[in-house]
Simulated scan of single mutants.
Amino acid sequence: MTTKAWRSMQSTVTVLASAALTMILAAGTFPGASAGEAEAKTILKSMSDYMAGQKAISFAYDTNFEVVTKDHQKLLLASSGKVEIGRPDKFRATRSGGFANVETTFDGKTLTLLAKEDNMYAQAEVSGTVDHLIDELRNKYQRPVPGADLLLTNVYDELMRDVVDVKDLGSGVIGGTECDHLAFRAKEVDWQIWIAQGEHPYPCRYVITSTKVDQGPQYSIQISDWKTGTDVVAQDFSFKNATDAKQVDDLKKLVDIDELPDQFAVGGTK
């Protein structure tokens, strides 16, 4: 076959493949996948019930946080960490990335945020459950926990709020684990979740797309090293100032402890 003929065939294959993909996406489904709404809801509810029933949980995670600049360039901010939960009222999480290295500790009465790079910490009196802590961090302190929606005891109700479309996209594999792949559309976001198949239906990946924001930036969290019950080593969740960190009187005085660093401004020019 001549070089010219080979290139012509390559071009034809590319065009046909692109056309086939366009047809699939336009139809709103994928070959071999079921768009069954009832099935998808059942799978999500099973995950929610399983998560709520676990008294001790630990896992590692990786997040990707897309931001869009004023000139429409997408930037991807990556971080990793670990989460440990002892229900109803114990929590510890770490997060490290290019802009932050922070540890969050909660013993049921006191919330502590430790900024490791600056060796500074702040505390606040927050009593109650892990659910209450997540709400306080998100709404009062603007310090959301990575993948917070997945850690609540009423995961199903929280995720299904304002959902207008549901799809079961069949199977996918995340980190070597076979998962059920589900897609949901809400009023302001699209989101997808991959849930491990079998008797431990934990979330393996969760992706949120902001459909009302220019360029549709995404936030994703991927979970690994999932452990529950007796596989989780019991720990003291109280804060130990092992590095002689300096205490400040306000959580807001701790800088660069979020996934979005301080040099970025929402809707601004930084």
Rank of each mutant, 00 (worst) to 15 (best):
Q73I: 13
Y219H: 05
D225T: 11
T105D: 01
A38D: 10
D249C: 02
G81W: 02
T63V: 12
P201T: 08
M47V: 05
D131M: 06
R95S: 10
K4F: 09
D118Q: 13
A27Y: 14
L251S: 01
T42Q: 15
Q73A: 11
K4T: 14
V207R: 04
E199C: 07
E188A: 13
F91H: 01
A234P: 04
A17E: 12
I134W: 00
W194A: 04
H132G: 07
A19W: 10
D258A: 05
D225N: 15
V207P: 03
Y219F: 12
K253E: 06
V166L: 02
V189C: 04
Q235Y: 03
G98C: 00
Q192D: 09
D190L: 09
D62P: 01
G32K: 09
Q142Y: 12
F237S: 11
G172A: 15
V155A: 01
H72Y: 08
L111I: 08
T105Q: 10
S79G: 15
N119M: 11
L159S: 04
G216K: 10
M1T: 06
R138F: 09
G267P: 06
A115H: 03
D49A: 11
H181I: 10
E117Y: 08
P201V: 06
L150S: 03
A234W: 02
N101G: 13
T153S: 15
L113E: 03
Y61N: 02
A56W: 15
E125W: 04
V163N: 02
D71M: 04
D262K: 10
L254P: 01
I24W: 07
A19C: 10
E136W: 09
T112S: 06
H132C: 01
A100L: 04
G229L: 11
N154K: 15
D168L: 02
A124F: 01
N139K: 15
K167H: 11
E199M: 11
D250W: 03
F239R: 01
L159C: 03
V15N: 13
S80K: 14
G267S: 07
S18H: 06
A27W: 12
D62N: 15
A183R: 09
V232F: 02
F237M: 09
R185H: 09
D62L: 10
N101M: 06
G128V: 05
